[in-house]
Computed example of a mutant assay.
Amino acid sequence: MLDGLTLDQMRVFVAVANSGSFRAGAGKVARVQSAVSHAIANLEAELGIALFDRSGHRPVLTPEGRALLANARDILLRVDAMRARARGLGEGVEPELSLVIDTLFPLEQVGAALTEMRAEYPSVAIRLSIEPLGGPVAGLLEQRCQLAVTVGEDFRDPRLELRALSAVPVVTVVAAGHPLARQAEGRTLAISDLADHLQIVLTDPTPLSEGRDFGVISPQTCRVNTQETKLALIRAGLGWGRLPLWEVERHLAEKQLVRLASHALGRSGLLVSESYLAHRIDAPLGPAARAFAQSLMQLSGPRSP
């Protein structure tokens, strides 16, 4: 029987495993080292297995300890989520709603959802940041925002709950007067064609993508920090790049920009990514945040490329 297991024991177990020593783990849970050792020993006795090999200078997780660590983390996350939900149910309206939105997501939908939220909660102030790549996820992990919208599958964290919103089509474009536009007439471009020209690329303001590039094909790059800058440089003819369809539809219709087709860029130069509404499972959402989330879920829908 495992009735003697406690959440405190599990928190101590996870703290020691994360920090790599009983002393460091004791510091994380604000206990003396002897109390931490005692808690781990009691947990091992309840489970009937050794969680750590103590024969070396530092305790090392046993194979059984590694297997059960994932279970302990999952249990603690669920308990934290339950506590957060209970706190949220007992709290009043929050004074401010803070959001970080992926630069690929249509801002009009966010604006419409905020308008509906403000109609119900007019006293709530709004703090909105538009960030690319890992920015929305980092905003939640760093507790800079209550809700975030992220696009794509590259950034995930078990501390976050995600709900799918809608598809976001991203197309590859170039200015109508650019040499690639003439090359692309009636043909599908090869990677070598694209690599011969400058690619305009967004940089990640966070360390979450350190050492990785996303969708970079050309060895010639111009890296910028905002989507508006990227669009402006592409329209000026400096190079080619990928942009959300909602942002370039008018420029394509007015023939200022041209779509590029290449098998390396998705069919017809189009890539469809899923967008997600995200929040920390250990942080309660107030009434205004819940109202905004509900409105955005209802307003967001699949868009045809």
Rank of each mutant, 00 (worst) to 15 (best):
H263N: 10
R78G: 01
V248E: 04
G286R: 01
L160K: 10
S268M: 14
L69Q: 08
M117W: 05
E142N: 12
D204M: 11
Q256I: 01
H38T: 11
T203C: 05
P158T: 12
G111H: 07
R159A: 10
E64T: 10
R223W: 07
R267N: 05
S192M: 06
L296R: 05
K255C: 02
Q143K: 15
P106R: 03
A253L: 07
A86V: 11
S129N: 09
L231D: 01
P207H: 03
F155A: 10
D282M: 07
R163K: 13
I200M: 11
Q109G: 07
T6H: 10
A45R: 14
V137Q: 06
L128C: 08
T150S: 13
N42T: 09
L77W: 06
D157N: 15
A24T: 09
L277A: 00
E161C: 00
A164C: 12
A67W: 04
H251T: 04
A26S: 15
L104F: 14
R242W: 00
L299M: 04
E228C: 01
G56W: 05
H38N: 07
A278R: 00
A289P: 06
H57A: 13
S262W: 03
A112C: 00
F22P: 06
R259K: 14
R182M: 04
V36I: 09
I281W: 00
L69W: 07
Q199W: 09
A288Y: 08
I281K: 06
G25S: 08
L231R: 02
Q9V: 08
Q9T: 02
G27K: 15
G134P: 09
G186L: 05
L194H: 09
T226P: 00
A190R: 15
E185P: 03
P169I: 08
R83E: 15
V60I: 12
D157R: 02
L189I: 11
V201S: 05
A70M: 11
L233T: 01
N42Q: 15
V36S: 03
A181G: 09
M10Q: 14
